[in-house]
């Protein structure tokens, strides 16, 4: 085969066009990143901390902060807790948040406030606290990007570098198009999605994003279908490796959260929320129970209060709206249980 035949080969031609496109796009990306090469190997936090609760913390001066995802919003009535404990309370329940975001909130907002709260209670499910890469990619990255910045080395290392596979880490460092694909996807979506909305009802990209958030708001979703979606998404919390507490703890955000709270004189309380996956302790898989026992032992040894889900608390499957969120009935019962345990904890302090 002579050289002209080789360049005429369809695959060679494809490769030539592909590499040319890759190089051109890479140059565009590198120009945007001030010609830094090789790249840092993790997603870039472009705008620094854009949203923080520091002002809220300084203005409200709460004594008690409740931190969690949407299950906190549905599971705890903050007014009842505040009235029963007599403490000024601030509830931060961010839909789709997990340990990476909670760590950022404690580090960048709570620990930075002029007035430090007396107690921070984190509401979590099963292995969420020791899975640093849970809810940090895709749409969740946009949230992390709002609260984090490039100086958060712990965040980058634990959420993005350690859990990545070898080929992924290689491409993130040496292939700019791959490393910046979220940004390019954003460009494409920003162009594509308002193509019809802009001329028809004058809705631009930002307006479309708000419209989607309102239409697909959690309360408009079908609980039965949503439950399956949650179960399928959360199945990654129950893989064999995630249930090995001692292996997961060191590389998780939990030691950092404990250290930050200790350093700032904040009493940390970890509250495990139940799901309607299991109806009794005997239902819990052996590996999960072993994980939870190790979690309790470890955090208690570090001086952290731990409240496990009590299956005898009177909350049944009918008190859940879907697989993880409680309904009004569940919320009423759980709030009472939480208040009772919290008061007991504060009294023994």
């Amino acid at each position: 085969m002579d050289s002209s035949n080789r360049t005429d080969h369809p695959f060679t031609r494809f490769l030539l066009f592909f590499i040319t496109g890759l190089v051109l796009l890479s140059l565009l990306v590198l120009a945007k990143r001030d010609w830094e090469y090789p790249l840092s190997g993790h997603p870039t936090f472009e705008r620094g901390v854009r949203r923080n609760y520091l002002n809220d913390m300084n203005n409200l001066r709460p004594e008690l902060v409740l931190l969690g995802d949407s299950t906190l919003n549905w599971g705890v009535d903050d007014k009842v807790v505040s009235a029963a404990t007599g403490m000024k309370l601030h509830k931060i329940g961010i839909q789709g948040s997990a340990s990476a975001l909670w760590y950022l909130l404690i580090k960048n907002s709570i620990a930075q406030a002029d007035f430090k709260p007396e107690v921070v209670a984190i509401f979590f499910r099963d292995t969420m606290l020791t899975d640093p890469a849970y809810r940090v990619y895709g749409e969740y990255f946009l949230k992390i990007d709002e609260y984090g910045n490039d100086a958060d080395e712990t965040l980058i290392s634990k959420a993005y570098n350690i859990p990545r596979s070898l080929p992924d880490r290689f491409l993130m460092r040496f292939l700019p198009v791959y490393a910046e694909r979220s940004t390019i996807q954003g460009w494409i979506n920003g162009w594509l999605q308002p193509l019809l909305t802009q001329p028809v009802n004058g809705c631009d990209y930002v307006c479309v994003e708000y419209a989607k958030a309102r239409v697909f708001n959690f309360v408009r979703l079908n609980p039965a279908v949503y439950s399956w979606d949650v179960i399928s998404t959360e199945s990654q919390l129950y893989t064999a490796d995630k249930l090995l507490f001692d292996q997961q703890f060191k590389d998780s955000f939990l030691p950092d959260i404990i250290r930050l709270c200790k350093r700032n004189g904040i009493k940390l309380v970890l509250v495990r929320l139940g799901t309607n996956r299991f109806s009794s302790r005997a239902d819990e898989p052996f590996l999960l129970r072993r994980y939870l026992v190790r979690l309790e032992e470890t955090v208690k040894a570090a001086g952290v209060a731990y409240m496990d889900w009590d299956y005898e608390n009177g909350i049944s499957a009918s008190d859940f709206r879907d697989s993880v969120h409680m309904n009004a009935g569940g919320r009423e019962i759980f709030t009472k249980v939480f208040v009772k345990d919290l008061i007991a904890l504060l009294e023994t302090k």
Binding site: R13, F14, F18, T20, G138, Y178, Q185, I188
Partner: peptide, 23 residues
């Protein structure tokens, strides 16, 4: 038209790289 075929496959491959997801 091999050139057109090659260009279309290379655009497809570029879009694959851009839309590759972690999960």
């Amino acid at each position: 038209r091999p050139i057109i075929q090659s260009v279309s496959y290379s655009i497809a491959a570029l879009l694959i790289v851009i839309f590759l997801s972690e999960a």
